Simulated assay, not measured.
Amino acid sequence: MFANPNFLTVLLFVVGTALQLGDVHSKQLGYVCWVVTLAMAAYVVIRWWEWPTHFRRKLDGFRIMRFGGRIPLPDAARIAYEEARASGSIWAEAAERLGNSNTPEGILDYVAMHFAMDTNLWGKRPPSTRLELIDPKHATYGAFAGGAKELRLRDKAKTVFTDMVVATKDLRAVIDQFRDGLKGDTQI
């Protein structure tokens, strides 16, 4: 625990603040704690920048999953596909083989269709800029395009939805479904 620089930074911050607020007669000790705290915080930031970029992206994903109510559908489809690949799920292989195309956009379109079948989607219907709930029946019979960036409904009006989002709780449910489902190497 004492080897973690984050813990030490917080500890020294609390000690320095307590010394300042407690009106300790040794102001020099308080200033030393503050200087060491700032040095430790700088060290943590420098170490963070040394991480590979895929770790930093995962931290952004963690922030969205924990503190956001909704996540853009292309990001949700990418996260679900990554988790399916990591767990060896049959859904990753299905997305690669059964999608419209074997391109990254085609794979995301396939995964987005899974979201349309099992979750609620919200999107903007141009020229409107307001998010509205997409009727699940219509979303199931629509076609995704551009890496889950737009949904083209198969109706006479040729309705298109863009900037779609999905609830993070629904993303968690889809990820759990992908993890717990059949694996690519399961004997049938």
Rank of each mutant, 00 (worst) to 15 (best):
G68H: 14
V45Y: 00
P126N: 02
E83V: 03
P127N: 02
A80R: 02
P72V: 11
W91V: 13
R57F: 01
L12N: 11
V14R: 10
V35D: 04
T37Q: 10
L19P: 05
K58W: 12
P136G: 07
R56A: 05
L59I: 12
A42K: 10
T129S: 10
I107F: 06
F67M: 01
G99D: 06
T37V: 02
D109Q: 12
W51M: 06
A92N: 04
R66Q: 13
Y31E: 14
L133T: 08
R47C: 07
A116D: 03
E83T: 09
E82T: 05
I71G: 03
P126T: 02
W48E: 11
T53R: 09
A86F: 08
S128T: 11
V24S: 11
P74H: 01
F62E: 07
R85A: 12
P72D: 09
V36L: 15
L21Y: 14
A95T: 03
V44P: 00
L12K: 12
M117P: 00
L19S: 04
V36G: 02
K27E: 15
H25F: 12
A86M: 04
M117A: 12
S26M: 07
V44C: 09
P74C: 09
R85F: 04
R57Y: 05
P127S: 04
D118T: 15
H114Y: 11
A80V: 11
D109P: 11
A41M: 15
V14I: 14
T37R: 05
S128D: 11
D118M: 14
E83K: 04
W91F: 14
N102S: 15
L29F: 06
L12H: 13
G68D: 13
I64N: 01
L59W: 13
T37N: 06
D109R: 07
N100T: 05
G69K: 10
S89V: 06
K124M: 09
I90R: 14
W91K: 05
A92L: 02
I71H: 03
T17F: 06
L12E: 07
E132M: 04
T129P: 01
E105D: 13
I64S: 05
H114I: 11
A86T: 01
G69V: 10
G30L: 07
P104Q: 15
T17I: 08
S101T: 15
A95K: 03
R97T: 12
E82S: 07
F55E: 08
Y81N: 06
D60N: 09
G88D: 06
W51V: 00
V111S: 03
E50Q: 14
R70G: 04
A80G: 02
M113V: 08
V15S: 03
L29N: 02
E132P: 02
D23L: 12
V15D: 03
L121D: 01
A92C: 06
T119K: 08
V35I: 15
P104E: 15
P52I: 07
G88A: 01
M65T: 04
A42I: 08
A80Y: 00
L98Y: 14
